[in-house]
Design a protein around this nucleic acid. Structure first.
Lengths: 219, 219
DNA sequence: TAGATTGTTAATCGATTAACAATC
DNA sequence: TAGATTGTTAATCGATTAACAATC
């Protein structure tokens, strides 16, 4: 009885590119550009025009033949598809250097995301502040999230602490997790987890460097 | 006349998984585990045993039928494949919060990587220190890298400055770049570029959260 | 030797590309 | 209307999975 499994599920690579389209469209919108053609998108993002149109086709029709796409309209519609059309709160675990960089990131608002609370298990940090946010004891998370009702979380703790951070997030109601620790997170299938390990990215780059592999992933 | 294009190029997804295998093997090695079977790897990383063996088959034979793989041996061999068997210097552009977190990351040594120099274009930062590293004027990069001879770089600057940071890295001799800015980097085909945009990752997670898509990428 | 697990092949699956009729 | 560009289909390409002979 999976919610709606047979409706030609959207491939994950399509979703990843969708967020690249959104980023590019935000840029164009900021520059006051009114319309954009798929060929222009290819030039600027490296994603082929055919791929772009195919990706959009999973969600409906967005352009005008002979014209292209209205930037603001398409930007808004992609944001809606990605559920970035109303504010979502995010819980952050880990008040270290990475956590600090994440809180200070100036781009959250554009995506209607907001870090609502920061947690750590280090008593020396609990009660102090990370920028304008109080650092809470990680054990207070379930209680705090009863009224925050956040469903997204970020793990910015060292690898050995990543799984327990995930467990705590899930126990608090979070169902989508971005994990920065180089560790595998085990979670029930109803929890979406993505791991971004920059040290692993460096390893891939190292191989590409020495073997001269161009197109080392991501356009 | 591409260096060696016809030798069944290794798929990028295989390389990405390779670095996950390495991470897991480092963990096992730290725990003093002597051998590991592909089925155990599947359990711990979520990557299927068949996939693991297929991935390794691009590079040779590594295991013993009936036994499995010797952890230290396999760890060493994968590190060698990824060229992580001798120290490589890395140039960092951007002495902000993210740059600070990267310099402070304790895991570099395990991968034989070392941030050798930090650059910024902000006069208020130039000459100051980021942890134990002096912050250099970004314009000094080509000169400085003449003797450092680093071929890897990291971009940790705001999106509008990302392309010029990349240009400067390339001009200084760098041929592999990890870009943290939500921006497309244009570079000649002999430069390997990977972009990691956490805000785009959050966008994908947002979609997965609301549509109940499990397996939101990366195991 | 018997049991277990690898390396590899062939089959399946899914994503990308190219081409073109529809349409602004 | 003529020219341009979309949305979509079919063909291609490449990666994953499954199965099994080889081998420790």
């Amino acid at each position: 009885l999976g919610s709606h499994s047979t409706e030609t599920a959207v491939p994950i690579p399509t979703l990843e590119r969708l967020s690249t389209y959104l980023r590019y469209l935000l840029e164009l919108e900021g520059d006051g550009v009114e319309t954009v053609r798929s060929s222009e998108l290819e030039e600027h993002t490296g994603i082929s025009a055919a791929q772009f149109r195919k990706d959009l086709s999973y969600f409906g029709e967005f352009g005008k033949p002979g014209i292209g796409y209205y930037v603001s309209d398409l930007r808004r519609r992609i944001a809606t598809i990605l559920k970035l059309d109303s504010e979502q709160l995010v819980l952050l675990v880990g008040a270290g250097n990475l956590g600090s960089a994440l809180v200070a990131y100036p781009g959250w608002e554009q995506y209607r995301l907001r870090i609502a609370a920061v947690f750590d298990n280090n008593v020396a940090k609990i009660g102090r502040r990370l920028w304008d946010l109080e650092i809470f004891d990680i054990r207070k998370m379930p209680e705090l999230n009863r009224y925050l009702e956040s469903r997204m979380g970020i793990i910015a703790v060292p690898a050995p602490a990543a799984q327990s951070a995930a467990d705590m997030l899930i126990r608090s109601g979070v169902r989508a997790i971005l994990n920065f620790a180089p560790a595998t997170i085990r979670a029930a299938p109803d929890v979406a987890v993505r791991t971004v390990s920059f040290i692993q990215e460096m390893a891939v780059l190292s191989y590409c460097l020495w073997t001269g592999t161009p197109e080392c992933g991501r356009p």
